Lab assay of single mutants.
Amino acid sequence: MSGIALSRLAQERKAWRKDHPFGFVAVPTKNPDGTMNLMNWECAIPGKKGTPWEGGLFKLRMLFKDDYPSSPPKCKFEPPLFHPNVYPSGTVCLSILEEDKDWRPAITIKQILLGIQELLNEPNIQDPAQAEAYTIYCQNRVEYEKRVRAQAKKFAPS
Rank of each mutant, 00 (worst) to 15 (best):
I4S: 03
R8I: 00
A10N: 14
Q11K: 11
E12H: 05
R13N: 01
R13S: 02
K14S: 04
K14V: 09
K14E: 02
K14I: 09
K14R: 14
A15T: 13
A15N: 08
A15Y: 15
W16F: 11
R17L: 01
R17G: 02
R17F: 01
K18T: 07
K18C: 09
D19Y: 03
H20Y: 03
P21T: 02
F22G: 08
F24E: 08
P28T: 00
D33E: 10
D33I: 03
G34I: 05
G34V: 05
T35I: 01
M36E: 05
N37K: 14
L38H: 05
L38R: 00
N40S: 13
W41H: 10
W41S: 03
E42S: 11
C43E: 08
C43Q: 02
I45R: 06
P46S: 07
G47Q: 06
T51V: 01
T51C: 13
W53R: 03
W53N: 08
W53P: 04
G55R: 08
G55L: 10
L57G: 06
K59W: 15
L60S: 06
R61E: 10
L63C: 06
L63H: 12
K65I: 14
D66Y: 08
D66A: 11
D66C: 13
D67P: 10
Y68I: 02
P69T: 00
S70G: 14
S71K: 11
S71W: 14
S71A: 15
S71G: 15
P72E: 09
P73L: 08
K74M: 15
K74F: 15
K76C: 11
F77C: 03
F77R: 03
F77Q: 00
F77G: 00
E78W: 11
P79A: 15
P80L: 08
L81V: 12
F82H: 02
F82P: 02
F82W: 10
H83T: 15
P88H: 13
S89R: 05
G90F: 02
G90H: 00
T91S: 15
C93R: 02
C93N: 03
C93P: 00
C93D: 07
L94F: 10
L94R: 00
S95C: 06
I96A: 02
L97H: 11
E98H: 15
E98F: 08
E99P: 12
E99H: 07
D100H: 14
K101T: 13
D102S: 14
A106T: 10
A106H: 01
A106D: 04
I107L: 13
I109C: 07
K110L: 07
I112T: 15
I112N: 13
I112V: 14
L114D: 09
L114G: 10
L114K: 12
E118L: 10
L119I: 05
N121Y: 09
N121P: 13
E122M: 12
P123A: 06
P123F: 03
I125W: 12
D127R: 02
P128Q: 02
P128F: 01
A129M: 00
Q130V: 04
A131E: 09
A131G: 13
A131N: 14
E132Y: 07
E132H: 09
A133P: 11
A133T: 05
Y134T: 05
T135Y: 08
T135E: 11
T135W: 13
T135G: 06
T135L: 12
T135H: 04
Y137A: 01
Y137N: 02
Q139V: 03
N140G: 03
R141W: 10
R141Q: 14
R141P: 13
R141G: 09
V142Y: 14
V142S: 14
Y144I: 03
Y144H: 03
E145I: 09
K146D: 14
K146I: 11
K146P: 00
K146W: 02
R147N: 08
R147A: 10
R147M: 12
V148R: 02
Q151M: 02
A152Y: 04
A152N: 09
K153T: 08
K153Q: 09
K153W: 06
F155R: 04
A156Y: 08
P157D: 10
P157Q: 14
S158K: 08
